[in-house]
Amino acid sequence: MTPASAFSNTRASYLAMALLLTLLCGVSLFVGTADLPWAGNWLDREALKILLISRLPRTAAAVLTGSSMAVAGIIMQLLVRNRFVEPGTTGTTEAAMLGLLLVTLLAPSTPIFLKMVIAAISALIGMGGFLLLARRLPPSQPLLVPLVGLIYGGIIGAGVIFIAYQADMLQYLAVWMSGEFSGVLAGRYELLWLAGAMAVLAYFAADQFTIAGLGKSAGVSLGLNYGQVMALGLLTVSMVTALVVVTIGMVPFVGLVVPNIVSRFMGDNLRANLPIVAGLGGILVLASDIIGRVVRFPYEIPAGTIFGVFGATIFLWLLLSRPARAS
């Protein structure tokens, strides 16, 4: 393949991604329990209200969640230099939940934005701890990193469950752990735009993240400010994780599956593939939400559950069909 055709392939995938996303957004606006009443050829005021208060925010929330979580996933994979990690499998989500649980327990009247900030700080500490652990693992054993991440996350998660059980707050955990969009209304999801903004911000440092993924010596040789890139990455991942946990709840596997699919076809040059990662993340989460809305109509299945089923299957396929050395 020549560079020119690689370029036009990138452009074609941008276009396909944008078309598919627009199409799904359109579908999402018109699928749901409430019928949109039509007045003549146009929607009447009631329908407009449903659209603006419920359907539009819900669609935006699904796209923002999917995009920002996929971006957080690929950034984490580059910083850890391992394909098989994401915030949800390395303790970052559990750490965010711990912060959120503690603030809900100790100061329940804290405004939501402050709760989010505390959850983000807690996620930051949790992810920092995992990075310190991961650094000590031999790079020749790529599967060790996700396994240690699962154990680390499991330990934090156990602490979270213990505290929640003691304080009789387990139902909160259930909400934070299963991402679902049926509760999204205008006025209750807007924090997610911040997650979207973080993902956009990450795009400006795309080259730096790609270089960090080449390893420390390549980064130093190219004069990369390693600490700065690490800090930006940590901030992006922990903010996105905390924002999603606070507003929607965890959608498992998005950060893991989406970057792996994209990498397979387009490689890891973030400057070219970050828009694709974000787009595909939005598409898959939105599609999961739409499926969740129609599969047992008029009841709903959480998007996180739908994505978990498909995501786990896709991830197993990626693991098994990939040569072992491609870590």
């Binding site: 690689a6 580059l78 230099r81 391992n82 394909r83 790079p139 020749s140 790529p142 790609t210 993924g213 080449l214 390893g215 010596s217 390549a218 130093v220 040789s221 190219l222 004069g223 990369l224 400010n225 990498s263 490689g267 890891d268 040059n269 050395r325 491609a326 870590s327």
Partner: peptide, 22 residues
């Protein structure tokens, strides 16, 4: 370090390559 990067480049031993770049 950014200025040294214009005077000196190092190629370390590559034990494994994690990135899929062209």
């Amino acid at each position: 370090t950014a200025q040294i990067a214009k005077a000196l480049a190092i190629v370390s031993q590559q034990n494994f390559v994690a990135s899929r770049l062209r």
